[in-house]
Amino acid sequence: MHPILTPLRVEPGADLPESLPADSAVLLLPGAHRGALFVEAALQVDGAGATLDAHGRGATVHAAGDEGLLRIVGLRLRGGRSELGACLRVDGDMGVEAEGCVIEAGLAGQGGDAVGALRGRLRLVGCQVLGELMLTGVAEAELVNCVVEGDLKLREGASLRLVGGAVRGTLDLRGTTTRAPTCTVEGTALAALRNDPRLPGLVMGVSATVPGA
């Protein structure tokens, strides 16, 4: 049972709050918001019609907490810059859910110029990812009816469940000598699949299209 939250309303152009107690809710009103979110505890962010632009000041949304759920609805994330996961980065064990969001490509030197996760549980529903999505380490993710315009890279022991939607880039898997990423595909249209022949991942399920492996 979710607590009843009274969201903090933020007008476009207004400063984002410096910090908030756990289980807070924020409503970003439609329009352009400048800033980035560094999240260490449960938070709900509603932002239908709103854009959050980090303007190169770190990942636009960085989920670093180990507990709780970050939930983002209807927001457009852009302008992020991070070593991994420019506009949405997950490196804590917390859960992250994004619904109806558009996540643009930013600048990420080590992969995932749109989304990157080392840990945590990431769930995207009905989202558009306009760049690369990279899962590594022990990240778990589920993409339901999402469109990923760039590559979708799985490394190390990451796991992914794809349900519907499409991956317009390459679904690219590579493990190590001690573990392998796993991907379950349920009716997702895949443009291309690359599974490293020496250190392959495990791909299961049925794609809506059958790319050349």
Binding site: V138, G157, T177, R179, R198, L199, P200
Partner: peptide, 20 residues
């Protein structure tokens, strides 16, 4: 080992002795 630390790796090239 975490419950999910050892995903299925059947069919991979590395010999099983390498898996730690």
């Amino acid at each position: 080992p975490a419950s999910s630390a050892g995903p299925a790796i059947s069919g991979r090239g590395a010999p099983s002795a390498q898996r730690g």
